[in-house]
Design a protein around this nucleic acid. Structure first.
Lengths: 143, 143
DNA sequence: AGAAATAAAGAGTGTCAACTCTTTTTGTTG
DNA sequence: CAACAAAAAGAGTTGACACTCTTTATTTCT
């Protein structure tokens, strides 16, 4: 459904929301170790997130990533759009090109309902909501 | 979400249910042209479906694929299992390995609800139900 | 029996996501 | 300012999926 990149990005941003605020920064090293994500691959993803302003970063010794004003308010579909592009939002379950409500494939209605439901939930959930769940011990970012 | 192979397989089986019964057979040529699916690739997929008994085939002149007693009763998850394996049924949205109800990722509950809903629908829908929709002109297999 | 048609089988190719490694740039700190 | 630490950038590798091409096996028809 979603790419691995999306999972990595979401987990990383959530981790930074928890541990990278009030002047604290999270290094790439620490981030990749804590979340068990390949170091260099995560670097590229973080680059992209910084470029889009989802998180901020500073270079140099004691540098790293940290949450900005936008970070906590970012909704999951924002991140999905960055990592997976816009295609996820419209593709047909059977891969038929001109599949739409007026010219539906046999699965169109059921699939659209399911997919749009998921996207709607993800459009309402913010990163800080996820962070809350993790802090309270209800949900987990690793393993 | 699902592989192209799944879409190809489902469309092919539905087409055969409509056009390959009562002694009629559908050749690979005809099938791939009607559904606009790459010829040789579809051949491999059909092989697999025949091996699993979803459809039958005969070689030689005027050979081709045709529906058997099982074909119409096949449910969509049967085909999904053949083309995409069992992983689809259990994977985590964020790619976390030991993600489950007792140790959930932040999206687990929402995603499981959505995914299981879709799979449940697909476990109840048979190929002949799809064929009905196509025959009545409500849904389409091409383009 | 021989030719032709057709599915089956298998090897080969392209592309992309996922991952690794190396180099460069930027900023900090002593 | 020199050394160093960390992110940024970019080239390289791998594996899986999607697709193509060629060869073989099987059946039918003349």
């Amino acid at each position: 459904m979603f790419s691995k990149t999306f999972g990595y990005a979401l987990r990383a941003v959530t981790f930074i929301t928890i541990h990278g605020n009030d002047g604290n920064k999270v290094g790439l090293q620490e981030l990749s170790q804590a979340l068990e994500i390949p170091h260099h691959f995560l670097g590229k993803i973080m680059q992209d997130l910084v470029r889009h302003g989802v998180v901020d970063s500073v270079k140099g010794p004691h540098g790293g990533f940290y949450a900005n004003a936008k970070t906590g308010k970012t909704v999951l579909t924002d991140i999905l759009r960055i990592t997976d592009g816009n295609l996820v939002f419209s593709q047909c379950a059977l891969g038929i090109k001109r599949c739409n409500a007026a010219h539906p494939c046999p699965l169109h209605d059921d699939f659209a309902l399911c997919r749009d439901g998921m996207l709607q939930i993800m459009a309402q959930k913010t990163v800080s909501m996820l962070a809350e769940g993790v802090v309270s011990g209800d949900t987990f970012l690793v393993r």
